[in-house]
Amino acid sequence: MAIEFPIELAALRNTFTQIEAVLDPTSLRERIADLEKQAAAPDLWDDQENAQAVTSALSAANSELARVTGFERRIEDLEVLVEMGEEADDADTLAEAEVELEKLRKDLSAMEVRTLMSGEWDERNAVVTIRSGAGGDDATDFAEMLMRMYLRWAERHGYQTKVLDTSYAEGAGIKSATFEVNAPYAFGTLSVEAGTHRLARISPFGSADKRQTSFAAVEVIPQIESTDHIEVPESEIKVDVFRSSGPGGQSVNTTDSAVRLTHLPTGIVVSMQDEKSQIQNRAAAMRVLQSRLLLLKKEQEAAQKKELAGDIKASWGDQMRSYFLYGQQLVKDLRTGYEVGNPQIVFDGDLDGLIDAGIRWRRAQQSQQD
C-alpha cells in the first residue's frame, strides 16, 4: 500500500507544532542568553559548584534547542525530498523519503514523551540504587544485570554516569549499587523504573535445573542541588568509616576511606566507597542522603494531601516488571502491559520502549487523579 505522503507530512507537522508549543524555543533562547551571561562572569569559577551547575545547564539548554530546531530542518528536508520524488516519479527517492519518514516518526515520539514530564524535579540528574532481594545468588546476579542494563542504556544515549558505591556479594553479583546518571530529565525518565523487578529463569547456580525466581529493587531519586537547602544536623547522623572492598570482600583500599552515614530519625543508610578519599566519600554520601530526605519530604506531603482529599489509593505497586529467560523469553511491564520478546536486547540497554510506555502510563494515571 502506497504511503500518502501529504497526509503523513501533515501529521508530522501537527505533532511537531504541539511539541514545540510545550518546549517553547523562544523561552529556551532567553534562558540560554541568561546562562551565557552567567558563564561569562569573570568570577564564575570562584564558586566551582555553582560554575559547574551553570555550565551544565547551558550545555543542556543548547542541546535541547538544537534538538528542536533540528526537527524543523528534518521535516523541511523531507518535504523537499518527497516533492522531488513525486515530480520525477522516482521510486528510489520516494523509498528514501519513506525511510526518513519512519525515523522522524520514531524520534518525534521520543521527544513527545519529554513533554509529558512536568514534575518538580523531572529535569534533574538521577541517583539510582539497585538492591538484591529474595533469591540468593540469582538475586545478586540479577541486581548486577540490572545495573549493567541501566549503564548500557545511559551509554547508548551518550549520558554521563558515575558509580558511587558497590557492595559485592560473596558469591555472584552485587548486594547493592548506587550510581548517578547526569543528563537532562534523567530523573523524570528513570523514575518510572522504580519498584521491584522480578527475574524467572533456569538458575545457572543450581544443579537441579529448576526454575528460579529472584527479585531486585530499583530506587530512583533526584540529585540534590545547592539551592534545595535540606539541613541535616550533625546530631542526627551516625558516621562509620571502613575500608573499601571489591568482589568477594577483597580489599581494594588500605585506608579507611569508605563512609557510611545513618540518618537516625529515619533510619536511612547511605554508603560511599568509590571516591579516593574519606572527605570525598562523605560529601558524596551526604548529597545522596539529602536527596533521599528531599524525596521523602515530598512523598509525605503528597500522602498527607491525598489523605485530606480522601484519596487513599496506593501508588504503582512494588512488582512492576518481570523478565522471563526461559520458555517464552519475554520482558513484560505489569503496569503498562508493554512487552519485549527479546530479553537480551533489554539487558543490553534497549529500554526506550519500556520507559516511554511507563512515562505515558504515569501521565495517564496523573490525569485521572486530577
Rank of each mutant, 00 (worst) to 15 (best):
L101A: 00
V22M: 04
L293R: 07
Y159D: 03
E36F: 05
A258I: 10
K297C: 05
T69M: 14
L330K: 06
T26P: 02
A200Y: 05
I202L: 12
G85C: 05
E4C: 02
Q368V: 09
D138V: 07
A91P: 00
N50W: 14
S235R: 15
W45Y: 12
R260H: 04
Q212G: 09
T227R: 14
G195T: 09
V270M: 01
T336N: 10
I7M: 05
K306G: 14
Q223F: 09
S167E: 15
A208N: 15
M149W: 08
Q273G: 15
M111E: 08
L28V: 03
R29I: 08
I237Y: 06
S132K: 04
G195W: 13
A88S: 12
W153R: 13
A95I: 00
G158Y: 05
R73G: 11
V340Q: 08
P222E: 01
E299S: 14
E180K: 08
I130G: 07
R260K: 13
R362D: 07
S167W: 02
Q223H: 13
F179T: 02
A40N: 13
R282H: 12
D24F: 05
Q52Y: 11
G246V: 13
R243C: 14
K238L: 11
F242Q: 00
E72Y: 05
A283K: 13
E20I: 01
A258W: 02
R282E: 15
S244P: 15
V239F: 09
T140W: 04
E144C: 09
H263G: 08
D43L: 12
I3C: 04
A258F: 08
V218A: 11
G119W: 00
P343W: 10
T255N: 03
A284L: 00
L94T: 05
I75F: 02
A302S: 11
V80E: 12
Y150M: 01
G349E: 02
D256Y: 06
Q160R: 01
N342K: 11
K297T: 10
A41S: 05
D228Y: 06
L334S: 11
L190F: 05
N342A: 09
K298C: 07
G337W: 05
G70R: 06
F324V: 15
A10M: 00
R148N: 09
L351N: 07
F142S: 09
D89G: 00
D34N: 13
K106F: 11
D90V: 10
V181H: 03
S59L: 10
L351T: 01
M84V: 15
S109D: 06
D46H: 00
K276F: 10
